[in-house]
């Protein structure tokens, strides 16, 4: 695993916004991402996420679906509604992988999704894939 990350080619600092209401999860993901040479900003709910997104202009958003207040779906909608933010790629992190949820999300324009518990390596691959397209 370690080798995997070390072997990854050097990329320019990718700024990733992690939006998730679970602080433990955020903590672990942040740590990992930083170790993978990404800069990380976090938010714990949808509103905060939108603020951060607007403020930080991340390269990618990792968006959890299940959040209090504004949930991931709602935030996604807001993102897409905002011309400044709508082009930021979003990878949804979902505990449920109900097809209808995914379909709904896809309709709103996510780039990819992972289900909890996710494999970090897989997540990294997806991130790279999404950003490669840019």
């Amino acid at each position: 695993m370690l080798g995997l990350f070390k072997a990854k080619k050097k990329v320019a600092q990718i700024k990733i916004l992690v939006v998730d209401d679970e602080p433990d999860l955020v903590s672990t993901v942040e740590y990992r991402l930083k170790f993978a040479n990404c800069s990380v900003v976090t938010a714990t709910n949808g509103h905060q996420g939108l603020e951060r997104a607007a403020a930080e202009k991340p390269d990618l958003i990792l968006l959890d679906t299940n959040m209090p207040g504004m949930n991931g779906h709602e935030m996604l909608e807001c993102l897409r509604a905002d011309p400044a933010l709508k082009n930021i790629p979003v990878i949804m992190v979902t505990a449920r992988c109900e097809p209808q949820d995914i379909a709904a999300a896809s309709a709103r324009g996510i780039s990819d999704y992972v289900t909890k518990p996710f494999d970090f390596a897989q997540l990294m691959d997806k991130i790279h894939a999404v950003l490669k397209d840019r």
Partner: peptide, 23 residues
């Protein structure tokens, strides 16, 4: 089940981080 997953993920990540000597 879904509720169980969330803490699980955190746990797993935490353990992985340490196990992989990232920390």
């Amino acid at each position: 089940s879904h509720e169980l997953r969330t803490p699980m993920t955190a746990m797993k990540e935490a353990v992985t981080i340490v196990r992989e000597e990232i920390a």
